[in-house]
Design a protein around this nucleic acid. Structure first.
Lengths: 238, 238
DNA sequence: CGAACGTTTGAACGATGTCAAGCGGGGTGG
DNA sequence: CCACCCCGCTTGACATCGTTCAAACGTTCG
C-alpha cells in the first residue's frame, strides 16, 4: 500500500479502464485465481499498458520476439509481403486476441502487425507468461485454444476469402469483420487493405465496394461501416 | 514376456519397421525416456500401426476426433471444400508429421485428410498422448512445435502458393513437395490436386505441367517426379 | 474387351489486372 | 485562416491470363 513501486496495472483496482481486463486473453483468469495478491504483483509488474494510433506498427519479423501483446480494444492486421512484392494480409485480430503468439514457442515473429484502428493493448514479456503458466495450468489450455483459433482463421482465409469472384470475396470479408467486432464497431479498411486481404487489385476492391454502396448494401462511416447482413450473405454464398 | 497380451508396437523391438519410430512425431522421445518399460507398455498399448493405399481417407470433420495420427512414411493432403464447391488443399503432410493435431485441443477435426501415396502410420488415442504428456514435459514443447509448424505452413500456402501467375505457383508447389519429402521421393499429385493446392483450374495445371515437361524442367514418374531445381526456382521467383 | 477416369488439347469468352488520368478531402505550412 | 499539396480513392479503356466448355485420347482396372 505504501510501497514506492507503482502497482502492477493488471492488479490495480484504481486503474482507469481496468474493466477491460476481463477481455485480456492471457490474464482474464487472474481475477479468479487463488493466488495471493502479493504474488500476482510480482508476476505482473512487468506488464505494461499502452495505446497506439491507427496505422502504427506493433511488431514485425525484425523485432525481438520476447513478448506477446493482448488487445484490449481495437483491430490489428497481420501481414507478410509475398514474393511478388505485394502485401498479403493473413489474419485479422480484434479485442481479446493475442498478437505475436508464435513468440511463445520460438522467435521470430512470423508476421508484421499494424493497427487498423486506435488500439489499447498490454505488453506481456514471455517470462511473465511462462511464470503464470507454471502456477496456473488453466492458462495452458487457454493458450492451446489460441493456437487453435489462429489455425482456424488461417484456414478461413484460405478457404473462404480466396474463393470465388471478387464481389463474393469482399462480401465475406465484410461479414468476417463484423463478426470479429462482436458488439463493437467493425473497422473500415482502406481499399488497399481490403484488396490484400482477399487477393484482388485495389481498383477492383474500389469498384466492388462502390457498387455495394450504390446498392444500399453498405454504408461507410469515417472509421467503421454498416452492412445489410442478409444481402451480403446472399452474395457471399455464390 | 510370457504375457498373453501382445506387446505394444512402439516398444516391441522385434516389430518389423520399428526403426521408423525414430521419426514418430509424438513418441520419438520415448526410446530415450527414463520410464520403466513396463510403464511404457501400459501407456502405449492402445497405439496401433496401420497401412493405407493411395487415395484413402484418414479422417474428416465427420469422424470422432479422439486420436491423432503420426505419419511414418507417405504423404497426406488436408483439404476442405470451399463455399464454391471446389476442393481446396490447405496443407500437405509428410513423414514425421501429425494428422489431426486439432483434436488435441478440441473436436472436431478441422479438415479432411487423404493419402497421396501409400501410407504407413500410427493411431494414437488422445488419452495416450495426454498420459505421456503428464509424465514427460518434453512432449509438451514438441507439441507446441507442431502447432507452430502448422501455422507456418498455412501461411506459406497463403503467401507463396496463392501469389503470382499460374506457372509460378506450380513451380513453388513442386519445390515445396521435394522439400517436404526430404530424402524420400516426392509424391506426384494429380492435376486436380495440383490445381486445388494452388487455386487454378485443372486444365491450367495440365498446360503448365506439360510445358515444364517439354522444357525438360520436370520429369514425371509413375508415383513421383524429378525436377530441375534451379530452373524452377527461377520461375518461382517471378 | 469395355468402361471409367484422369488427362490433354483447342477455341472463345470474360473477369480482373494494368495503366493512366482526374478527383477529393484532410492535414500542414505559410 | 486560407491555400496548397499529398495521398487515397475513383473511373475509364484496354490487354490478358485463366476459366470454361467441349471433345478426344490413353491407361488402368474390372
Amino acid at each position: 500500500m505504501t510501497s514506492a513501486r507503482p502497482k502492477a496495472v493488471c492488479v490495480d483496482h484504481d486503474w482507469v479502464g481496468r474493466s477491460d481486463c476481463s477481455r485480456c486473453a492471457v490474464l482474464h483468469i487472474v481475477p479468479f485465481a487463488p493466488l495471493p495478491l502479493t504474488d500476482l504483483e510480482e508476476f505482473l509488474g512487468p506488464v505494461t499498458n499502452f495505446q497506439l494510433a491507427r496505422g502504427a506498427r506493433l511488431l514485425g519479423p525484425e523485432s525481438h520476439a520476447n513478448a506477446v501483446i493482448t488487445l484490449r480494444s481495437g483491430f490489428v492486421k497481420l501481414f507478410e509481403t509475398a514474393p511478388s512484392g505485394r502485401e498479403r494480409i493473413v489474419r485479422l485480430l480484434g479485442p481479446g486476441d493475442v498478437v505475436g503468439l508464435e513468440a511463445l514457442h520460438a522467435p521470430p515473429y512470423l508476421h508484421a502487425a499494424e493497427s487498423l484502428t486506435p488500439v489499447d493493448a498490454c505488453h506481456l514479456p514471455i517470462p511473465v507468461v511462462h511464470a503464470i503458466e507454471a502456477r496456473m495450468p488453466e492458462l495452458h489450455a487457454s493458450m492451446l485454444a489460441r493456437w487453435h483459433r489462429s489455425l482456424e482463421q488461417a484456414d478461413r482465409f484460405l478457404v473462404e476469402l480466396l474463393d470465388g469472384p471478387a464481389p463474393t470475396r469482399v462480401a465475406r470479408l465484410l461479414l468476417m469483420l463484423v463478426e470479429l467486432a462482436g458488439d463493437s464497431a467493425p473497422p473500415r479498411l482502406t481499399r488497399l487493405d481490403t484488396a490484400s486481404a482477399v487477393d484482388i487489385a485495389p481498383e477492383t476492391a474500389s469498384r466492388v465496394l462502390t457498387r455495394f454502396i450504390g446498392d444500399g448494401i453498405l454504408v461507410e462511416e469515417r472509421d467503421s461501416f454498416r452492412i445489410d447482413r442478409e444481402a451480403l450473405r446472399t452474395i457471399a454464398r455464390s
